[in-house]
Nucleic acid binder design. Sequence first.
DNA 1: CTGTTAGCGCTTTCAT
DNA 2: ATGAAAGCGCTAACAG
Lengths: 345, 345
Amino acid sequence: MGKKKETITIYDVAREAGVSMATVSRVVNGNPNVKPVTRKKVLETIRNMGYRPNAVARGLASKKTTTVGVVIPDISSAFFAELTRGIEDIANMYHYNIILCNSDLKKEKELRLIETLLEKQVDGLLFLGGEVTDEHRDIFAGSSVPIVLAATYDDEDESRPYVTIDQVQAAKDATSVLIEEGHDKIGLIGGPLTDPILGYPRYQGYKEALEEKGLPLREEWVRLGDYRYHSGLQSAKELLTGDEAPTALFVINDEMAVGAIHAAQDLGKKVPDDVSVIGFDNIPLADQVRPLLSTVAVPMYDIGAVAMRLLTKYMNDEPIQENQVLLEYRLELADSTLTKETQTG
Amino acid sequence: MGKKKETITIYDVAREAGVSMATVSRVVNGNPNVKPVTRKKVLETIRNMGYRPNAVARGLASKKTTTVGVVIPDISSAFFAELTRGIEDIANMYHYNIILCNSDLKKEKELRLIETLLEKQVDGLLFLGGEVTDEHRDIFAGSSVPIVLAATYDDEDESRPYVTIDQVQAAKDATSVLIEEGHDKIGLIGGPLTDPILGYPRYQGYKEALEEKGLPLREEWVRLGDYRYHSGLQSAKELLTGDEAPTALFVINDEMAVGAIHAAQDLGKKVPDDVSVIGFDNIPLADQVRPLLSTVAVPMYDIGAVAMRLLTKYMNDEPIQENQVLLEYRLELADSTLTKETQTG
DNA sequence: CTGTTAGCGCTTTCAT
DNA sequence: ATGAAAGCGCTAACAG
């Protein structure tokens, strides 16, 4: 496949065009200090010879790779796929490429990947969605490469840049929607409370909303899932069975929320008449279910885009006004709850 | 962020450990020709000094980057996200990293990205989902880097490696399910017929199935969408209105198929009692809708994984038995059609 | 505007 | 088992 082309270098082009390597380099890099005639001649021989610049050599000499590393939990999750799309679009806009790595939220894998990316001399690093531990901090501190967190944050390092949303407040707002709808038996389908990024804060928001309105937080109305559809389906089946069943569910991500809707329907309950459901994230699925899912619209694409943009600023030593960004979210109230209004936080 | 660490090189380690650069290099690369004592000492000073190998320098010297380029239409599509996951898992297994690029199926963007990836000296390239034109072939031919196609193929270049499924046969099988269910008014929601990768072949399969059974292909039962949910919703609304409406729909991807189910339900029709729907791809959504969607299960993850594995073989000059692979698909018959059986092709 | 000359940090013969 | 030395292809002063 492809001929074993003897690599043609900048030196070959220089010789052929009758100029120096430096001049060819200048032409290739768009340096204005080249006489138009010379430029033309060089460009011509470049085309004729089929010369293609070697970015690795350039990287070694210039100490810039125009490549950034992205460590993400799982690209097959709709949430992170959308986020990654935001990252890549901005990266592309600024002429960077991204090396994409799935971490599965495994700490050891995360650390290994970060190490590899640093070895590959990425100009910057985006760390998404995982918890930042001391070991992460050690490796971050040992490098001079700018690192920005996205869809997570580091509560132990006040200076670490991040882009995310206020998880607690958003969860609180979502729960409040159900309360204001008149519900006083509100269940939760959450994530592991040991998850400091999503599971715990969203639980916390639920709790705070109930406390504020003087509603009881009953253990039997709480289930902790694994963020997947079937987990939501199963959890809701349990919650909605029995006579003291909640009449509303706050489900901390859309996939589980849609599972909850289907569970209710399987049990012969109408959504939202018999049970209201509000989700979280606003992945496309929220709009591809009947009834349409009310949810917290997280600006996934923007989180990625803003984080990448912030990273470019670090990489180019641009002035930075704000390096810890809480993006706005919206309550997207559709048909799985009753009320119709929009708030923002 | 991070101290401006003066880069410590293999030379520094060598000096500090009292050995030569070559020896350090051997240790770092696991070359067995190093006395255990020496190895130990070197490893120790590496740890003490916090030495991190520079993969760019290594890449320049060795002409290997252990990085592969991946050009994909859109990472935010469930289909390609899953495929990419398969790619990355295998890449990771063989110690490669991937540079991920979204092409949006725009030819110019594809060509530009491929060019950039080759400049970055990727060891191999995976080109996904797009059409291979003469310009693609030119650039492919001008490089000695192995290139494998995934979820697409090149009908003009008989030697170009690829991994995909038999689109025509699969579409034919899906349509046949509806026919065998007793339907004779079978509509199609397809993609653009100008799309040689999905739109046309899946249409072709539909057509062949009808012809084979002597059923009429009626223009008014065909709608061409854009693969998105709303397009399926809208198309189905049009198809299912009127008295000569089809009683079954073959929808060429799941997203549109779910849209079609919802359209039917919105029109007060029951699925599958009033109208059967069969989709294509078997993305997670197919399992997150009621009724559960019958569909053609495409081994998305495997297409990516097998393509990546094939690429590693090229990159390591391993013997290759089969470089053009048609993976098997299954008919996943669930609740949006009546019959219950499984075939494979 | 153009050329010369050092490296960038590592791998890789070739000796020893 | 280990070292010396020549590049890999390019950028970046520094001259002129």
